[in-house]
Design a protein around this nucleic acid. Structure first.
Length: 232
DNA sequence: GGCCAGGACACCA
DNA sequence: TGGTGTCATGGC
């Protein structure tokens, strides 16, 4: 399949997912700092649990860099308890707000004034921010066009028969970004739709969860997908 | 009672 | 460089 055909498949898939599921309105947060906190808390956690943790932080008035810097890690940990891994995540939040204050005086606009490559490079130096979290921050908080890769994205792309040359994060990301226009709105919606599809298939069809949405590469027959139209 | 969710990091060979 | 263990709650 040549580059143009791949672009067509990706755009076609996007359009079908969009028509099937509708707008996703990601990221579910009121402001960019909340997006960043959510991106850290959602690491290997269900979003419903993250919502509880964020609600606790809001209720405690702790959803600002300054407050998080002041609060002891133990107290942050107890507030974010429902999101799991609370001790590690408390440390990650503390590390980020310390870095943000020291380097940018808590001003996210200044941080986001960096170009995408510099922004990504800087975020990746912070403890607790890996590739997916960095890209989620760049796309959903800074509104810059990078494609976020997660487990769902990999599985769905594999199911489309479009596995990149190597199965690294970078290879998957390059694959999407080389074949789609650099549009943050498109990337925003596309990634959200892929996650939506992944959750939907898992929930409605456990056969798919075992056969085609796991990491083994095995896959089920077309008819077993609740929205197989979106995957053709 | 087991499995998994919008990962990242440390450690080891 | 790649594989494995660790961190942990809550919903199904």
């Amino acid at each position: 399949m040549d580059g143009q055909a791949i672009s067509q498949v990706l755009l076609n898939t996007y359009q079908k997912l969009s028509a099937y599921y509708g707008p996703q309105h990601w990221w579910p947060a009121e402001e960019p700092f909340e997006v960043i906190v959510g991106a850290i808390l959602t690491q290997s956690a269900a979003w419903t649990n993250v919502e509880k943790a964020i609600a606790n932080l809001k209720k405690a008035g702790a959803l600002t860099p300054k407050t998080l810097r002041k609060l002891p890690s133990e107290q942050i940990a107890s507030l974010i308890y429902p999101s799991g891994y609370y001790n590690v995540k408390a440390r990650k939040l503390k590390t980020f707000v310390n870095w943000l204050g020291r380097r940018y005086g808590d001003n996210l606009s200044n941080l986001f004034n960096n170009n995408i490559d510099d922004l990504r490079e800087q975020l990746l130096t912070v403890y607790g921010i890996g590739e997916e979290t960095a890209d989620s921050i760049i796309l959903y908080a800074a509104d810059k066009p990078v494609f976020v890769i997660d487990a769902y994205t990999r599985r769905v792309l594999n199911r489309l028969g479009l596995k990149p040359p190597t199965e690294t994060y970078d290879a998957y990301q390059t694959f999407f970004m080389e074949h789609l226009p650099a549009d943050s709105k498109l990337f925003n919606e596309y990634h959200a739709l892929l996650v939506c599809l992944g959750k939907d298939v898992c929930r409605k069809n456990p056969v798919c969860e075992r056969c085609c949405l796991n990491a083994t590469g095995r896959h089920a027959t077309e008819g077993q997908y609740p929205c197989s139209l979106a995957l053709r």
